[in-house]
Amino acid sequence: MDPDNDEVVFDAPEHLRIYKSGRIDRFHRPVLVAAGVDDDDSGVASKDVVIDSVTGLSVRLFLPKLQGPSAKKLPVLVYFHGGGFIIESARSATYHNYLTSLAAAAGVLAVSVDYRLAPEHRLPAAYDDCWTALRWAASARDDDWLAEHGDSSRVFVAGDSAGGNIVHNVLMRASSADNASRIEGAVLLHPFFGGSTAIEGEPERAVVITAKVWAFACPDAAGGADDPRINPTAPGAAAGLESLGCERLLVCAAAKDWLVARDRAYYDAVAASAWPGSAAWLESEGVGHVFFLMKPECENAKRLMDRIVAFIAGS
């Protein structure tokens, strides 16, 4: 092997290592859990559904305990997991447990998307998969849970980190799609945004990390780290924010997250745009990136969950 091409260009010891050649070592091997009925008091049931046999795209559905035979239909929440477009799964214990809690707390029928990962499947594969899954879930035709219990007039999208980035890009696609399904609200949890140069309050290492991960996941991106898909506030890109394809937006950040400056800049740009929807901001103090996945019982995580529940309820 050419030693120059075997140079390490990005190293996150607990998660992954990326080489100049395009090779990747994944150290993060999530524990996968089977779908079924949750053993705790939530009573949330889950199941896996393959929605595209060609690409292998699948989703995991989460159905909370229903209160009687005449229970009203539930909002549908389509969720995109994080992991830098490179690691994690909708079937991992981390996301299974989080979606179980979210479905129970918010009273939603949740659809967690197991999209294809880079580098084996470069972007826009993940964007395409998540768009396909959203359209499938919103149709409420091809699955008995969705048909019987899902309210297709109340569709939400949410995601953390890279999944938050996917939420933004799905909203941009929804704005221009013919006969696009109505998206009532979107929740971006610590979304993964970047750029070629640091903005106010952004550490230089954040610029380096996001640029390297983005170049690996989407090596053909026009403009590199200023491609509007990773930098929606880049010169010339921010004007497109007025077309976000949802009615309400909640952007959530963490004060000790290296992405917090980018997340704030995104929220400010949306709020300053001509987008006709309503945008809200929540910043969790004293915590870091996706803390709510690692410490779901902490007070900040509980407050964040309460805010998401209230957002879905319309307040």
Rank of each mutant, 00 (worst) to 15 (best):
M1K: 12
V9F: 07
V9K: 08
F10Y: 06
L16N: 04
I18R: 07
P30D: 01
V31K: 13
V33K: 13
A34Q: 09
A35S: 13
D38R: 15
D38P: 10
D40F: 07
K47E: 12
V50T: 15
I51P: 06
T55Q: 01
Q67N: 05
G82I: 06
G82Q: 11
G84V: 02
I86A: 00
I87F: 00
S92T: 01
T100K: 09
A106L: 14
L109W: 00
L109I: 12
P124Y: 03
D128V: 15
A137F: 10
A138K: 03
D142C: 10
A147V: 11
A147D: 12
V155F: 05
A158W: 11
S161A: 14
H168M: 03
N169F: 02
A174R: 07
I183M: 05
A186I: 07
L189I: 14
T197G: 03
T197Q: 15
V207W: 09
A217Q: 03
P228E: 02
R229N: 02
T233R: 07
A234R: 00
G236F: 04
A239L: 09
G240H: 05
L244V: 11
A265Y: 03
Y267S: 03
V270I: 15
W275M: 07
W275Q: 05
P276T: 02
G288L: 02
G288T: 07
H289Y: 05
K295Y: 14
P296A: 08
E297C: 11
C298D: 15
D306C: 10
A310R: 04
A313P: 06
